[in-house]
Simulated scan of single mutants.
Amino acid sequence: MWKKISLILFIIFYGFAGVNHFLNPETYEEVIPNWLGDAGVINILAGVVEIAVAVLAIFKPTRKYAGWITIAMLLAFVISHVYFIQLGHCAGGVCLDPWIGWVRLVVIHPLLIYWAYAISKS
């Protein structure tokens, strides 16, 4: 039962996260370093990949791909998390306490990677 709940939450989480890239692009674009390229294009690609991951996770034959693609995506997102910390923990006009950026990078991000790994095994 917990696996099913985890899977449903994973699908919802990444589906909404992907859509949010299109609804609030400025939040994401601001934490994409210039040296990576066009922040608008990268943001759109990230949103598309997150939506695709949610869809892939729905179906058992493609679930392992959803997990591994998510892991790769999350590893790529480390760049933005570090950049967010370097920016002084501000993005999209919102500034957070410095510890929040560190908790996201050191605690939450690894937990999301583990969650994706667990999904790839279900």
Results as ranks from 00 to 15, higher is better:
Phe10Cys: 05
Ile11Pro: 00
Phe22Gln: 10
Gly88Ala: 08
Ile69Met: 08
Ile12Thr: 15
Lys3Pro: 06
Lys3Thr: 12
Phe16Ser: 07
Leu56Pro: 06
Glu50Lys: 11
Pro25Phe: 12
Lys60Tyr: 04
Leu105Lys: 00
Gly18Met: 06
Leu105Gln: 06
Leu75Tyr: 13
Glu30Ala: 14
Ser122Leu: 15
Asn34Trp: 07
Asn24Val: 09
His81Tyr: 08
Gly37Leu: 01
Phe22Ser: 08
Gly93Ser: 14
Gly15Phe: 02
Asp38Phe: 13
Phe13Leu: 12
Asp97Pro: 13
Cys90Ile: 14
Lys3Val: 04
Asp38Tyr: 09
Ala118Lys: 03
Val103Gly: 02
Asp97Glu: 14
Ile8Trp: 09
Leu56His: 06
Pro25Tyr: 05
Leu105Ser: 07
His89Val: 03
Lys3Ile: 12
Phe22His: 06
Trp68Val: 15
Ser6Met: 12
Leu74His: 09
Pro25Met: 07
Ile32Arg: 00
Ala66Gly: 03
Glu30Met: 11
Asn24Gln: 14
Ala54Asp: 02
Asn20Leu: 12
Val41Lys: 11
Trp115Thr: 07
Leu111His: 05
Gly40Asp: 15
Trp68Tyr: 15
Leu87Pro: 02
Ile69Val: 10
Ser122Pro: 11
Ser120His: 06
Tyr14Thr: 08
Leu36Lys: 06
Leu96His: 07
Leu56Gly: 03
Ile42Val: 05
Pro110Asp: 04
Trp35Gln: 06
Ile85Gln: 10
His21Met: 10
Tyr65Gly: 06
Ala17Lys: 09
Thr62Cys: 08
Ile113Lys: 12
Phe13Ala: 14
Ile69Lys: 06
Lys121Phe: 00
His21Ile: 01
Val78Tyr: 06
Ala46Pro: 00
Ser120Cys: 09
Val82His: 00
Val49Asp: 03
Trp68Gly: 11
Met73Pro: 13
Ile51Val: 15
Ile32Lys: 04
Leu56Lys: 09
Trp115Val: 12
Trp99Gly: 06
Ala46Cys: 11
Ser80Tyr: 05
Lys121Leu: 01
Ile11Leu: 09
Ala116Phe: 08
Asp97Cys: 01
Val31Lys: 01
His21Phe: 12
Ala76Val: 15
Tyr28Leu: 09
Gly37Gln: 11
Trp2Asp: 02
Asn20Ile: 02
Val49Phe: 07
Lys121Trp: 01
Ile100Arg: 00
His89Thr: 12
Pro98Val: 01
Met1Asp: 07
Ser80Asp: 12
Ala72Ile: 13
Val31Asn: 07
Val48Thr: 13
Gly93Glu: 08
Pro25Asn: 07
Tyr14Lys: 04
Leu75Val: 14
Trp2His: 10
Arg63Leu: 10
Lys64Asp: 02
